[in-house]
Simulated assay, not measured.
Amino acid sequence: MASEDPAQPADEARRGSEKGFAFSLLAAPALVFVNSIAKLDVRGGEKLPKTGAFVLTPNHYSNFDPVIVGWSVWNLGRAPRFLAKASLFRVPVLGGALRLIKQVPVERTGRTSAGTALGAAHDLATTGEGIIVYPEGTLTREPELWPMRGKSGAVRIALENGVPIIPMAHWGTQAILPRYSKKLSLFPRKTVLIAYGEPVDLDRFRGVPLTQSVLSEATELVMGAITALLEDLRGETAPAERWNPSAHNQTEFGAL
């Protein structure tokens, strides 16, 4: 007779509680839609913690990315919670729904609003929930959709709360919604490749002052891990130098 893991029912109960009725109710129609236009080929899904807090850091090149990332995280038994644009929270009905399922609003400018967002993310971490943070902060400006320079919010959350940071990469979402496009391609059904990596080793940065140089070095480790996963998915080698928008006279936000 196969042995049973006595912890498994408790784990399943915690995961079900994390999703909650409201999350499940709101997710149902979205899941039906996205399943009709895309299918996921997931690699390394076991590396996403089944319970407890984590910071997940995906690459970002399409406005449809959060749907795909959220769907994958949901399928792995965790509730997807993002740092999301604050403007979405001002949309009638949608804003209320986002607050109900504990998404975190982020204003594009201002240190105070950034601090508030990080505080909300810390609250999720302390209650054992995961948070999804795009370390690039916006759609990549890199011409071939490789990850560009990262921002420090993700590593700050991970280091200040002592939680693992999980790199993630995906490829294929651009076939559903190209970068800066507003037109979805519904047919034929697209395959999106997804890879989860081992937690990024940030041990040497824990317990030390989080100076700008420390945060920059830790962030580059995370961006390197994401890029390596994406190289495997694409079967290509990324540029040796990380794309820096300011060096190319590009703004951080809005379409190119």
Rank of each mutant, 00 (worst) to 15 (best):
V200N: 03
G96N: 11
D123T: 11
V32R: 12
A86V: 07
N75P: 02
V208T: 12
P29K: 05
L26G: 09
R234C: 04
G16M: 15
T140L: 14
N75A: 14
S87L: 02
L100I: 14
D203I: 13
A10M: 15
W74T: 14
L94F: 05
W74H: 15
L26N: 06
V91F: 12
L98D: 04
P178E: 08
A255I: 08
F23Q: 09
A240K: 12
R108L: 08
T237V: 10
A84H: 00
D203Y: 14
P135M: 06
T138S: 13
A247D: 15
V155K: 00
K19Y: 08
F23L: 12
S152Q: 09
K19W: 01
D65H: 01
K47R: 10
L145F: 11
E107S: 10
N75V: 07
S87E: 11
A154C: 07
K47S: 05
S246I: 05
E220Q: 13
T227Q: 04
A255P: 08
L40I: 07
T237G: 02
V104C: 03
A238H: 02
P58T: 14
S36M: 12
L177S: 03
R78F: 00
H122L: 06
T51W: 06
P80F: 01
G130Y: 06
F21I: 12
G119L: 05
A27I: 01
E144C: 05
F89A: 03
M1K: 13
I176L: 15
L31R: 15
R189S: 08
K47H: 09
P29L: 06
R141V: 04
I132K: 01
H60T: 02
A228F: 04
I68S: 04
E18W: 02
L184F: 15
R179G: 00
P178V: 08
K183T: 13
S185L: 12
S36G: 10
R14Q: 14
P239S: 04
F187G: 08
L139C: 01
L100P: 07
G70D: 00
A228P: 09
L202R: 02
P147I: 06
L256Y: 13
A238T: 06
L145W: 11
T227H: 03
R108E: 01
P80Y: 01
G77E: 04
L118C: 08
S216F: 13
D123N: 09
I165L: 10
Q103K: 00
I226N: 04
L139M: 04
L230D: 03
E160C: 10
P143C: 07
A154S: 11
V200P: 00
R189F: 08
E46P: 00
F187N: 11
K102V: 04
E136D: 03
V192F: 10
W71T: 03
P147K: 06
A22T: 15
V155G: 02
P92V: 06
E144R: 08
L83S: 02
A84R: 00
T116I: 12
R99Q: 15
D203A: 15
V67N: 04
L215W: 06
T237R: 11
P92W: 01
D123I: 10
V67W: 12
R156V: 05
P80M: 03
D41T: 02
L186D: 10
G172S: 05
A38N: 07
M168H: 10
R206Q: 10
V155R: 00
